[in-house]
């Protein structure tokens, strides 16, 4: 559980990136933090594993205040996958890359071996075990970065812009992966501006603007509310755009899923057409 209590954060340069942010991430939840570039999304999640400490207020991870502990000890609970895998890959082989964190955390030799093998097969990287991570394609490098974090089995997983530069198939795989993590009752926080991806997953959404949280609730309630979205410069998902132009059909307002939209349209139109 992560408790964010009235957190404010100001960078040394004087930029006020967070103001009065307060919410709780419960165990097993799936949250998407959305908003424009520069709204403070990444700054906020960097507080979850102590990379940044609040200037005002407190952040508690499982009851422990982040100010009073180290990044290394928080990182064991909170896995953080950065946007660009090239910012973390440095080892000669994929296997060593995945073992890196496990060594840092002082796992036993045997456990490291087991966990590396598990992470490799979980993310379909087995055949690259001895390959240099720099030889892999962009999508594969992203998977190695993910595997290197999953390996230590953190309870909370933060993914910063996981869909950037990913094609349709890769995004679908990512969605499957998140669903799978959900069944294992992992807590997942993604930072993203990919509104279509969020519409497909329908997680809890936190909408940020200028360092504040301006909306907090179920995806379908927030993404289908054009007024709230406009305030934080988020473009509504296509389904919402379509429905907003069909006022005279008196369709329900909170639809973001394509299949639900289809069923509703069929029902409405069948009646009308007959």
């Amino acid at each position: 559980m992560i408790e964010v209590q009235d957190v404010g954060f100001t960078y040394p340069s004087g930029v006020e990136a967070l103001r009065g942010v307060a919410f709780t991430v419960n165990n097993g939840e799936f949250i998407a933090i959305m908003g424009q570039n520069g709204a403070g999304k990444t700054t906020l999640v960097k507080h979850f594993n102590g990379l940044l400490k609040p200037s005002i207020g407190r952040v508690l991870v499982d009851g422990i205040e982040t100010k009073k502990t180290s990044v290394a000890s928080l990182a064991k609970k909170v896995g953080f996958v950065f946007q660009n895998p090239d910012h973390q890959l440095f080892s000669e082989t994929v296997e060593e890359e995945i073992a890196f964190a496990l060594k840092n955390f002082g796992f036993e030799e045997e456990t490291i071996k087991k966990r590396v093998t598990w992470a490799l097969s979980f993310l379909e990287l087995k055949k690259y075990r001895k390959t240099s991570p720099f030889m892999l394609s962009g999508g594969e490098r992203k998977r190695v970065a993910l595997a290197s974090v999953l390996a230590w089995n953190p309870e909370i997983l933060i993914l910063d812009e996981p869909t950037i530069g990913q094609d349709y198939k890769q995004k679908e795989k990512l969605r499957q992966f998140i669903l799978q993590m959900q069944t294992q009752e992992k807590t997942i926080v993604i930072v993203t501006h990919d509104v279509e991806f969020v519409a497909e997953c329908n997680p809890r959404v936190l909408l940020m603007t200028e360092g504040r949280i301006v909306a907090d609730g179920q995806g379908k309630n927030i993404l289908a509310n054009p007024e709230v979205l406009a305030k934080s410069s988020v473009v509504p998902p296509q389904v919402v755009q379509i429905f907003s132009r069909l006022n005279e059909l008196e369709l329900p307002k909170n639809v973001i899923d394509l299949y639900e939209a289809k069923d509703l349209l069929l029902k409405k139109l069948e009646k009308r057409l007959r």
Partner: peptide
């Protein structure tokens, strides 16, 4: 092929499949 077809086009196809 796995290309990200626009949602509007998908919806059109899905409706057509169900007879609309």
């Amino acid at each position: 092929i796995g290309v990200g077809i626009p949602k509007a086009t998908l919806l059109f196809q899905m409706l057509a499949k169900d007879g609309l």
